[in-house]
Simulated scan of single mutants.
Amino acid sequence: MILIIGGAAQGKLDYVLQQTGYSPDQVAHTPEEAQTLPIFDGLELWPDLDEEALLSANPDIILICDEVGCGVVPMDPAQRTWREQVGRLCCRLAKRAQRVERIFCGLPMTLKGDPSTWN
């Protein structure tokens, strides 16, 4: 599994498509679709994701998640809880990932793994 993180509109999906040669129709947007498609974009919308089930069904998936923990802390307790859940999910996934990359302004920064290889 590969985890790609970065702010909104920073080019994460474009980067993954360029690196892999996959097309936009091979991108999942729900956990159900992610069981069989190679890329799952929008992970931050699913903080209660059953990661065990997903990784068991699709161990080589590329997960793309917007960073939601930077910036002003929301006043709304539900928003703070959501941000914490997404952050904890990303921490768990990063520990298991073969590679973690952060995309900023379309530029990749390898946080974990070999930056010279893509499966």
Rank of each mutant, 00 (worst) to 15 (best):
M1D: 05
I2G: 00
L3C: 06
G6T: 08
G7D: 11
Q10F: 02
G11Y: 06
L13A: 13
L13I: 10
D14Y: 11
Q19F: 02
Y22E: 14
Y22V: 02
Q26A: 15
V27F: 14
T30I: 11
P31Y: 03
E32P: 01
E33I: 07
A34W: 00
A34I: 00
G42Y: 06
L43Q: 04
L43I: 10
L43S: 06
L43G: 01
L43A: 07
E44I: 03
W46L: 06
P47Y: 10
P47N: 10
L49D: 01
N58P: 03
P59N: 11
P59F: 03
I61T: 01
I62S: 00
I62W: 00
I64H: 04
D66E: 13
V68F: 05
G71N: 10
V73D: 10
P74R: 14
D76P: 05
P77R: 08
P77Q: 11
A78W: 13
A78K: 05
T81I: 13
T81F: 05
E84L: 14
E84T: 11
V86L: 09
R88T: 10
L89D: 01
C91L: 13
C91D: 04
R92K: 14
R96N: 03
A97D: 04
Q98D: 14
R99V: 13
E101G: 01
R102T: 06
G106R: 12
L107V: 15
L107T: 07
T110C: 15
G113N: 09
P115L: 06
N119C: 07
N119G: 15
